[in-house]
Simulated scan of single mutants.
Amino acid sequence: MKQNKYDELGFFEKYSEMPRSMGGLSAAGEWPVLRTMLPTLQGKRVLDLGCGYGWHCKYAREQGAESVVGVDISEKMLAYASANNNDTGIEYRRLAIEDIDFAAGEFDVVVSSLALHYVEQFEAVCRQVQHCLADGGTFVLSVEHPVFTARAAQDWHYGPEGERMHWPVDDYQEEGLRVARFLDHDVVKYHRTLATYMNVLMDAGFQITKLAEPQPTQEALDQYPEMRDETRRPIFLLISAVKL
């Protein structure tokens, strides 16, 4: 199933009000770590899968990337990206991640930020990424952490006074579809274990070079106090890998 929630008016409006939507990369809690996992982008050909507002596309060009292709299934996302994060070296294409079919070795770097947990066939996408990367090319991705996606509820266990007691984890080994409540809408996500993410990448011909489960920085906590509970359990999983 190719999901396109972001073209639903109510969902897109709520997404547009999120801090990371208004503040860009500086408001993305995982960005300080994800940035360090990217290779040097000077002169590189970059593909952004699930590019959304185009923040990473713009960053790649600012770092000297020769060209950037951003793909996203959402017309509304791409309209914002084209209006606000455009550049002569960026090409935005309306395309589902599952439908990518680029030429062999067309890119040096592939990035995907918080998009692949919406994709059912992670294995197929990894094979396509491996195909379109040049030898030695880098694949950097972030997804919602398996501890976060294991239960469809994706919520805390609350005490009698409404206090957040702990984050429950259940059905971790049962991979597959979860219908989560996000921005007051039902959204389909796909839960995978940490081992699955790693093994699928290795089986597709990648060598994993770094893993990260970042916490918000102190600066982010000072600016967004509501993020303080994000230090109590991982919410993001970041992986950097190179094509063998």
Rank of each mutant, 00 (worst) to 15 (best):
L114H: 11
Q173K: 01
L116R: 00
S16A: 13
G176L: 11
P216S: 13
H191T: 06
F102V: 13
V33P: 02
H145F: 10
E62M: 07
Q63N: 11
L201S: 10
V111G: 09
V140R: 10
L49Y: 05
W31A: 03
M18S: 06
P168S: 05
L133K: 02
F206G: 11
Y197D: 04
N86Q: 08
F11Y: 15
Q63P: 00
V129F: 15
E13H: 09
L244D: 05
R228P: 05
M22W: 06
S112W: 08
A212L: 06
Q3H: 15
M77V: 05
G52S: 10
R178H: 15
I239S: 00
D48Q: 07
G105T: 11
K14Q: 08
A241R: 06
Q128K: 12
E230Y: 01
Y15L: 12
D48T: 09
M22F: 06
I100K: 02
Y6L: 01
E174M: 01
E144M: 11
A115Q: 00
T196Q: 12
F122Q: 07
L116W: 02
G176K: 02
T40K: 10
A83C: 09
G70S: 12
F122M: 03
S112E: 05
T88G: 08
P168D: 05
T88Q: 00
G23P: 14
Y172W: 04
V147T: 09
Q121M: 11
M18V: 11
Q154E: 10
E219W: 02
G50L: 15
F102K: 09
Y80P: 10
Q42N: 11
H117M: 09
G29A: 14
M1Y: 07
R45S: 07
Y15G: 08
Q173G: 04
A150N: 14
L25R: 13
A60F: 08
N4F: 04
M198K: 06
L141G: 05
M202D: 02
L238P: 07
A65T: 07
Y118M: 05
E174H: 07
K189M: 13
L116D: 10
R164V: 04
D48P: 08
A65K: 01
Y172V: 00
Q121H: 14
Q215L: 07
K210H: 02
A65W: 04
D48R: 03
E163P: 06
E213P: 04
P234Q: 06
K2F: 07
Q63H: 10
G54R: 15
L177W: 08
V200D: 14
R35M: 03
L211G: 03
V71R: 09
A220M: 10
E98C: 00
N86T: 12
E174W: 00
L95K: 14
G205A: 03
N86L: 01
N85P: 01
M77H: 13
D87K: 03
C51T: 15
F236Q: 12
M77R: 08
R127K: 02
D108M: 01
V200P: 12
L141W: 03
K58C: 15
Y158W: 05
A104G: 13
L47I: 06
Q154M: 15
D203L: 03
E175W: 09
G52C: 14
Q223Y: 08
N199S: 08
P225Y: 13
L177C: 11
V33H: 04
P39V: 01
E230N: 05
A124K: 11
A65G: 03
Y172E: 11
